[in-house]
Design a protein around this nucleic acid. Structure first.
Lengths: 118, 118
DNA sequence: TGTCGATACAACCTGATGGTTGTACTAATG
DNA sequence: CATTAGTACAACCATCAGGTTGTATCGACA
């Protein structure tokens, strides 16, 4: 569970509508894999694979309850994705501020403005 | 045409680290495709493709400036992704509230007669 | 303990993705 | 107007992702 919440996997997992729906349904944390599968026009195995993708991305967890394995969404995974977007928004606001600065100051000559990394 | 800001495309686009970096750099909105390409260990054409993916997802736009086409990130695209995550968080909070309700009320009647025992 | 419900996993097919090279279009510039 | 920087796009290739079926495991229970 080291790489549990890898950002690449999180976004990739969220890129599929079926998987987003599984995430949504699993917030309630009541359904097993087979029950989830009933909601989609595909095989049980396909849904099982989707759940596996979500699990690898750290977006859901499975817990054995009786003979089923109940799927629950893991809020931390979603938080990881949110943080990335928050970061962009922060940078975006910074850009706006800088534009405002340019308007008020109007000092020319800022050419090699580069490198910021992340 | 198409689905301007399709959520599938947005998340899929953000699933690639190179593309996320392009989004980040393009917030400044200063570099053309070739300038962006200089930062990555791949061909110009490959970067061009990445930009195209971001463009289709509504995450960036291109504007001709001189002989270059400057790439700028489009905040609306990011906002679309954020809205999805916000929705999940909202549902998540609702779940917590419902759990709290169950604890305080404890009046059954909502039974599906499931998960017997523990 | 033998059966059934629920889950896991492997093998396979197909289309999408991420990378390459090569060629062609477009617009500054000498 | 010929050249060249910058971009676009097509063809091609390898790998991955989403789906299928088929078989195996595992836990509950008559």
């Amino acid at each position: 569970m080291q790489t549990g919440t890898d950002i690449d996997r999180v976004f990739a997992a969220l890129a599929d509508p079926t998987r987003r729906d599984i995430v949504r349904r699993s917030i309630a944390g009541q359904e097993g894999v087979a029950e989830l599968a009933d909601h989609y026009p595909m095989s049980f195995a396909a849904v099982q694979k989707h759940v596996a993708v979500l699990e690898r991305a750290g977006l859901v967890t499975k817990q054995r309850i009786g003979r089923r394995k109940v799927v629950r969404t893991h809020a931390d995974g979603l938080a990881a994705a949110r943080r990335v977007l928050d970061h962009y928004e922060e940078l975006w606001r910074g850009r706006i501020d800088r534009m405002a600065d340019l308007i008020t100051e109007d000092t020319e000559g800022t050419d090699k403005t580069r490198e910021t990394q992340a």
